Amino acid sequence: MLFSLALIFLCGMGLGSLFQKLKLPALLGMLLTGILLGPSVLNLLDGSILAVSADLRRIALIIILTRAGLNLDLADLKKVGRPAVLLCFVPASFEILGALVLAPRLLGLSLTEAAVLGAVIAAVSPAVVVPKMLKLMDEGYGTRQSIPQMILAGASVDDVFVIVLFTSFTGLAAGEGVAALDFAKIPTSIVLGVAGGVACGWVLAELFRRVHMRDSAKVVLLLSTSFLLVTLEDALPGPVSFSGLLAVMAMGIALQYRRGQVAARLSQKYAKLWVAAELLLFVLVGAAVDVGAAAETGLAAVGLIFGALCFRMVGVLVCTLGTRLTGRERLFCMLAYTPKATVQAAIGSVPLAMGLACGQTVLAVAVLAILITAPLGSVAIESTYRRLLQKE
């Protein structure tokens, strides 16, 4: 495992730096590193690290979502209001609708199989979007209209909505039917996740106020609490659902609200942790890519992905109607809400493992969605935010 970790960090940093010099996002170099080192090409990564890949990717997500919460001011979030709520589910719903329209025609899937495929590709990637929005907030772009904050909030809940729908659609495709309780998980996941995270944030804020400790010790406490919250998500059975990642972000927001100066210092610590976590996340996402499966689907799958993205961008436009955003700012929101990576890597292989007839096709499209939208979305954000957004 140690040799594999060394390869991940050294090759990931090397290719990431090379792509940055070519004016491309480092993320693309990290994904390419994972593909080259993974089972599909050179197969240089130890099986033990691939076995814990999902857990390592989840830790990386915890780190970036905690940092997002520590930087998200409640006053800014209140200013956004309705559009942030709509971004949680409207764009994903539009993209699933796009898959229902296009997948039967392009890939020959049934409507149920198209719904499964749509749920896999509909989730936005917080791992790509969150660091970019934090950068915008640091530089002051779009902050007057709270655009980065709006996208941060929407992207964190979007995944909860999509994963619940994915569970329902796969059950339907497997002949198990869909229970009303499955859809009840969406509001309970959000409400319980936010409530649990806020409660933990308030307790930690009070602890930090009463007990003097180094910031490094506070980071350890915060990380440990985050791990417990995410573990709780897996432990709760039945209709009582809990979003651990949403709780992690809510905990950071609550801590920022109660202890702003402490949150600012902890955010800087988390920024240093993200240097290593980012490499792990995107290299291991790349390692999960099955290049052969992606090549089999051909141009039809590429057309489906871009067509579904058009539906998604219309959904984002609908969310911003009636706001004070300019046309340029709305265009930026549409572009910023396109990258996909982590959720697709996590659930793309589930239909195949379940033995569904559409499993291989779903996996191939999920892989292509990562390869196409993660770098393109990242490039779109980096190359347009200075022109489309106002600097504070």
Rank of each mutant, 00 (worst) to 15 (best):
S226R: 09
V164A: 00
A153N: 04
D138I: 08
P83Q: 03
A277V: 11
L255V: 01
L27W: 03
R324E: 14
Q149D: 10
D234Q: 13
M354P: 03
L15R: 01
L87K: 05
A293Q: 14
L10Y: 05
K135Q: 13
G16Q: 02
S267T: 05
L331K: 06
V314T: 12
F161R: 01
I370K: 04
M137Y: 01
F3A: 13
F9T: 02
P39Y: 07
A114H: 01
L309S: 13
A294S: 15
V291G: 07
Q268H: 11
Q20E: 15
G171R: 10
A127R: 07
L204V: 11
A294D: 12
Q256K: 14
A155N: 02
M150W: 06
L325W: 12
V160R: 02
T143D: 07
G47Y: 06
G177R: 02
K132H: 07
G197K: 12
A127G: 15
V85S: 08
Q261E: 15
I35Q: 03
I8G: 00
L28I: 08
V240D: 04
F311N: 03
A60V: 12
L72K: 08
M137Q: 13
V130T: 12
T373S: 13
A60N: 11
G175S: 00
A6H: 05
V164K: 01
A26C: 05
L299G: 12
S349A: 12
S243F: 11
M334T: 11
L70S: 10
V124N: 00
L2T: 14
A374Q: 03
A235G: 03
G193S: 10
V365G: 08
F227N: 05
R105V: 09
V314I: 15
S378G: 11
P351V: 08
C88I: 03
S216F: 12
V80W: 03
R105C: 02
V362M: 06
A293R: 14
A205R: 11
V283D: 08
E329I: 00
V157P: 01
L87Y: 01
G16I: 02
V275H: 13
L204D: 11
Y270C: 10
S224N: 09
C88Y: 06
D182A: 14
L5S: 05
L22F: 10
D290G: 09
G201Y: 13
F89Q: 05
K340C: 13
L56N: 07
I96A: 09
L15P: 00
S4Q: 07
L321V: 13
F332W: 10
A345K: 04
G201M: 13
V230F: 10
I64V: 15
G177M: 05
F242R: 08
L255Y: 03
S224K: 07
G322N: 04
V203M: 14
F166Q: 01
L284Y: 08
V41Q: 01
S110L: 03
P148G: 09
V162I: 01
L229V: 04
R67E: 15
P148K: 09
A75I: 09
R328P: 02
L273A: 11
V219H: 06
T167K: 15
V365T: 14
P131A: 07
E392D: 14
F169L: 13
L236Q: 05
L389K: 06
C11I: 15
P351Q: 08
V124Q: 00
